[in-house]
Design a protein around this nucleic acid. Structure first.
Lengths: 204, 204
DNA sequence: GTCTATATCGGGATAGAC
DNA sequence: GTCTATCCCGATATAGAC
């Protein structure tokens, strides 16, 4: 078996396809982030990508399809960036991530705008966000539980509640930051909460 | 001067107008709350109000106009309900309000969906939310400052930061609650944060 | 793979009868 | 005040030429 069958080829007819798709998704990312799902149009995305509407439609069967690809891309990118370093402490990771997000225009807006828009029953992104909250809460709860086992969680703090709190606070403060970036410091706000809830290592 | 000139009459030709307007706004409230601004249509609102599209347009010059009326109505209703009792402690007020909101379908969704949607530059609700965050942060900051003066604020907690935190946490947890109402207790989450930040009165 | 052209639909606005 | 009818636009979707 020396013929390469599995997976898309790096050269040849498929190479351009994959690149185009990717390019479209990246532009769609920006458009959805700034105008929401309902507020965006495929025309606008096509224009941003510098191609015709029909050409865009050659790659995606519909608007929903594009949105789902955008969310997939987000997960893909996030898998590399969001993952904590091997032994980076949880609280440092959260704060660093919040600070980093401010430097990547669009990420915050994408989540803020879409997560709120997608509460509607028939929104194509609803399933994604349901799953995302679920995963995120589980992960953070495990982190807080581990910290508790190290004696670093303040007495009376529930790991599950703290997990939901961090996520809520994070999203909420990012939204305020979107409105008035000069008046809100998301990373500092998160750090203040974590300082309140966690005891410093040597105290344990 | 025994003729009543000022203000709309309770009877006569204007009575029906005012009532209709109010009725439309109330339906629009529900529609915007569940589908967002971009996701809603005047046709849908008219249908909900049981009138024709043209008739609705007789009362409002456009979609924006309807949205602004909805936000006005929200302020009007909120002015009665949101205002704290004369000497109700701040923390009790917050928690009680969060609990009460869960019982009024739509309020939470209206704010969650619209506040996120309205970050866009050209969204007709943007100004409203900018002002709302500003007012809310000022009010809460004053409350925290007062608590600090009573020696009831934990050391090292900044009133301004705590104000932004409460608002962010509140909005964020309500969004999670919209997705999975059975798994999130917004009031309890807020109470947990306030318990963390405030010292009980007798401790002072 | 990319385009132009067009079909089809749903949105907000407008005109005008009653 | 309320309606029907219609206009016009922007959106998605489709057909088919190159």
């Amino acid at each position: 078996m020396d013929t390469e069958i599995a997976g898309p080829r790096r050269r040849g007819p498929y190479a351009k396809s994959a690149a185009r798709r990717r390019q479209i998704v990246e532009e769609a990312y920006r458009v959805f982030a700034t105008r929401g799902y309902h507020g965006s149009s495929l025309r606008e995305i096509a224009a941003a990508a510098g191609i015709s509407l029909s050409n865009l439609q050659h790659y995606f069967t519909g608007k929903e399809d594009v949105l789902l690809a955008v969310l997939e891309l987000r997960d893909e990118l996030g898998a590399g960036v969001d993952a904590p370093e091997d032994d980076e402490p949880f609280e440092r990771h959260i704060v660093a991530q919040a600070a980093a997000n401010e430097r990547i225009p669009g990420v915050i807006a994408l989540y803020s705008v879409l997560s709120a828009e997608a509460v509607t029953d028939d929104h194509p992104g609803r399933e994604y966000f349901l799953g995302r909250y679920d995963t995120l809460r589980s992960e953070y709860e495990a982190e807080f539980a581990a910290l508790r086992d190290q004696g670093r969680l303040r007495d009376g703090v529930d790991p599950a509640l703290a997990a939901a709190t961090v996520i809520a606070l994070w999203e909420g403060i990012q939204l305020q930051w979107l409105y008035t970036p000069d008046r809100i410091d998301a990373a500092a706000t998160l750090r203040a909460y974590l300082d309140l809830v966690l005891l410093s290592p040597q105290t344990a």
